[in-house]
Design a protein around this nucleic acid. Structure first.
Lengths: 197, 197
DNA sequence: TGCCTGACAGATATTGAAATCTGTCAGCGG
DNA sequence: CCGCTGACAGATTTCAATATCTGTCAGGCA
């Protein structure tokens, strides 16, 4: 083993994220990453077969990190409607926080996500599964009335696209946004709820 | 009056659309438009103060044309749920047709719309008003149960963003799309409908 | 007079040569 | 033997010179 820290995929990913943060997606090269790690760029290619795969791996890390709080919420227990509402609001908040905190970084993330199709697709599917989990809890609790849980979870995800898809990010800052979110969530919850009256 | 056809704003718009169709948004210049009209480009500036205003006017024409069938549907009568469903499906179909028929032209339209913010905003508001019209008909018919019609109309518009906003156009061709639309519409209609049971 | 032209200044886009980057691999050093 | 290096070919990006475009306006023509 070398006296220096070993060159692991994890260390490369960390450094790549750093480089992206400093240079932006357009400017960052794998030569930059190698320089930051103080190795030749050939060494980086020993761990990632291409620049694209490196980018994908970074994207996956980001998305997984962002997903963590949502997984917890879906796994929690309590009344499904409240949990669904909180789950959605948390998802919106996570995205919005990213935009506000560091718009430049968000732009990087957006561009990254647009190239890492497969990774993003998997991430979306995971999110739909989380929604489905809450919905099925709601059905078990007798508060939701749902035909096809998977399809309905997808519908909820689709219906809220405006507030979680980065393509609409620039609209999230508008002052009328919160009340529009309220109206949307109310409409969806009413659509899910079992009729009692 | 000249022996040639007079140079009217209408004629300029028509020709501009033609030029855009042939050259694409990126390449089309007002010099091209003037050439096609066989006048100097200075003459075009006599009718439109800037290239941006010309583009906006073209965008408005397009949007108004696309909106026409939707206005008719909103003004029709009959049971509100069916009408809303048909209204939504028609809107989706109009957009999808544009993408399929001429993807290049759609890209032009998309870029155009992204620059003509105000025009697009007005168009969206008009569409929300149409939805609100159908919703209030539904309330009058006793089939919908709605607190705030304007807010709910906006919520329906927001919830269907994925299937009418051009940013999502590339997903419209997917095979699972129709069934996802079905699930979404079913969920929304259930949320709007008055509970009878 | 009223509409159009064409030349002009400053801004923007195009182009092609030079620089940089991606991905590979033979060979070095531990 | 194993992992790293650094030179290399082909692809991509940068940059600055050149060309084109936008928007204005004084003047021509009916």
């Amino acid at each position: 083993m070398n006296e220096a820290v070993a060159l692991t995929p994890e260390r490369i990913l960390e450094t790549t994220e750093d480089v992206l943060r400093r240079f932006g997606l357009a400017k960052a090269t794998v030569v930059d990453v190698a320089r930051a790690l103080d190795v030749s760029h050939g060494s980086v290619y020993r761990h990632f077969p291409s620049k694209a795969s490196l980018r994908d791996a970074v994207a996956k890390r980001w998305l997984d990190r962002a997903n963590e709080p949502l997984c917890k919420l879906a796994a929690a227990d309590g009344p499904a409607p409240e949990r669904l509402e909180q789950w959605l609001r948390t998802m919106f908040a996570i995205k919005q926080k990213k935009v506000c905190d560091d718009p430049e970084m968000f732009a990087t993330y957006l561009a990254l996500a647009q190239e890492a199709r497969e990774v993003v697709e998997a991430y979306k599917n995971k999110q739909c599964d989380l929604v489905a989990k809450i919905l099925s809890d709601g059905v078990a609790q007798g508060v939701f009335e749902i035909d096809d849980i998977k399809a309905t979870a997808r519908a909820v995800f689709d219906a809220t696209v405006r507030y979680h898809h980065p393509a609409h990010a620039e609209e999230w800052a508008k002052p009328e946004c919160p009340s529009r979110i309220d109206a949307l969530i109310a409409l969806l919850l009413k659509g899910l709820r079992a009729c009692k009256s």
